[in-house]
Design a binder for these strands. Structure first.
Length: 456
RNA sequence: GUGCUCGUAGUUCAAUGGUAGAGCGCAGCCUUGUGGUGGCUGAUGUUGCGGGUUCGAAUCCCGUCGGGCACCCCA
């Protein structure tokens, strides 16, 4: 290898960062499995035409064989862009062997060719959950997705997160109701409200989406509605737009907000400016902001899709939501919102008196490991002061001193808590560290109020 | 991919175009087998990298890589 160099958009974590990431992944897996989601993994590559969802050109990394011959056909493969589209393909391919509705979680890397920015990478990890039905999928799963993600977020040592929910039927019905023909165009313009402001969006709506002045104004008014409960319905009705699809969307969104907040109060708000870039969503759409860190964008999003997977005879509607693990980790690390008790798994460093007695130290380590206590043996028989410092640097809380080397007698062994200085006699077949010291701990450095636990 | 901006010791930051520095951290000793506080001593580096202008470049110019921002898009 030549000189190692960082690669833009392909971040690598230091050991302590990886501890944080792994902790999030562990909690995610635990919460997902508690809710009955099974685990799946799909291949990293897909035929490019599968990845494109709609016709919009995505930032897809294309795969090419280095030694491809001149005339060799292009395999047309690309790295997957998200986990939902590959999952839909997987469902179609294996539908005969799967049970529906299928609840699955999937935690994998995905790749996008976009220019990297704060919290935005070219390679990052997503933790997805989806429920997919065969032919039909009950609406209540659209509530469930918000509840599961909210439950997960509440268990993590992170600032409060709020899931913002909208509904494609509501938006599309409203746009049709005011006379729009290019509802996608309207959606795209509305999506820019935060960035370019109402005035410029109004211009866009009139010029590009072909709306009348009044229609554009109403679309902007719609997008400004945001309520923590179902009262948004009255506000939308007050705009006086009539459309069946709109009514359907209003009912669904009201049900999601009411249903999710009934289970997890304050977890969800109706925010009618949420648009979502992906065009395959057909119902509820989700985005999630970290309170106080809105500028990094959504840390979790998803939605309902009715037409993503279909083999012509049977369709497989689904709903899913995805946690942006890499983005969340980068925010937590970049702003010092969490810290870790140590970056290594070892709870104990077994000191070595001299090289001749190293086997005695190894025996102690083996006895601790047999009882599930992570430990390592000092790499060299330095002065004990140095060995203690070795542990201190790594955050290893305990140093074990084997007693005088006198065969098969653990007597004389002592273990020292180097944080307090307490040193006590100990038996490697019986001693155990406090439960909190058994594995590295990840804790929030800002939230002083306890992370709200279950409300159910 | 386009545009803007930043890049100095492990780290946080200094240095009018004129000898590259400070705090923290690190190493050694005070401390002959138990760290942290304290004292003394010491090393930090091809100023991201490559070119160019200049008697002379950390400083100005070009390119490139990396960080950030905006566009685009989105976890």
């Amino acid at each position: 290898m030549a000189k190692p160099t960082r690669l833009s958009g392909f971040p690598e974590l230091l050991p302590s960062g990886r501890v944080i990431e792994q902790y999030l992944l562990d909690v995610a897996r635990q919460v997902f499995e508690l809710h009955g989601f099974l685990s799946l993994e799909t291949r990293a590559v897909e035929p490019i035409e599968n990845l494109q969802g709609g016709e919009i050109a995505k930032e897809i990394y294309v795969l090419r064989r280095m030694h491809a011959a001149d005339g060799e056909a292009d395999p047309g493969l690309g790295l997957h862009f998200d986990l939902t589209v590959p999952f839909a393909r997987y469902v179609l391919e294996n539908s005969a062997q799967l049970e529906f509705p299928l609840r699955r979680y999937q935690i994998q890397k995905v790749w996008r060719g976009e220019r990297p920015q704060d919290g935005r990478f070219r390679e990052f990890t997503q933790a997805d959950i989806d429920v997919v039905g065969s032919g039909a999928l009950a609406f209540h799963h659209e509530i469930e997705m918000a509840v599961v993600m909210s439950t997960l977020l509440a268990k993590l040592p992170i600032p409060p997160a709020i899931i913002q929910v909208n509904n494609r039927k509501l938006a599309e019905g409203f746009y049709l109701g005011v006379g729009a023909t290019d509802t996608q165009g309207v959606l795209r313009a509305i999506d820019k409200l935060d960035k370019i402001g109402a005035d410029r969006v109004r211009v866009l709506l009139e010029a590009e989406a072909g709306l009348t002045r009044e229609a554009a104004a109403k679309c902007i008014q719609l997008a400004s509605i945001k309520t923590p409960d179902a009262t948004f319905v009255d506000q939308v009705r007050a705009l006086g737009v009539q459309n069946d699809l709109l009514d359907e969307g209003l009912n669904e969104l009201a049900a999601v907000v009411a249903g999710a907040n009934a289970e997890r109060p304050g977890s969800v708000v109706a925010d009618l400016r949420i648009a979502r870039g992906l065009d395959y969503y057909t119902g509820t759409v989700y985005e999630t902001q970290l309170v106080g860190f809105e500028s990094v964008g959504s840390i979790s999003s998803g939605g309902r899709y009715d037409n993503l997977a279909s083999d012509g005879k049977q369709s497989y509607p689904g709903v899913g939501i995805s946690l942006g693990v890499s983005r969340l980790v980068s925010v937590l690390i970049g702003r010092d919102l969490v810290s870790v008790s140590r970056a290594v798994p070892s709870a104990v460093l077994v000191a070595v008196s001299d090289e001749a007695s190293r086997p005695a130290s190894e025996l102690v380590a083996r006895q601790l490991r047999n009882r599930g206590i992570s430990c390592e043996v000092a790499p060299s028989a330095d002065k004990f002061g140095k060995q203690i410092r070795f542990a201190d640097r790594r955050g290893i809380p305990f140093v074990w001193f084997p007693g005088a080397v006198q065969r098969e007698s653990p007597e004389g062994d002592t273990v020292k808590d180097i944080r307090t200085g307490d040193q006590v006699p100990a038996d490697a077949t019986k001693w155990a560290p406090p439960i909190d010291d058994l594995t590295p701990r990840v804790f929030s450095t800002i939230v002083t109020t306890a992370v709200s636990e279950e409300s159910s």
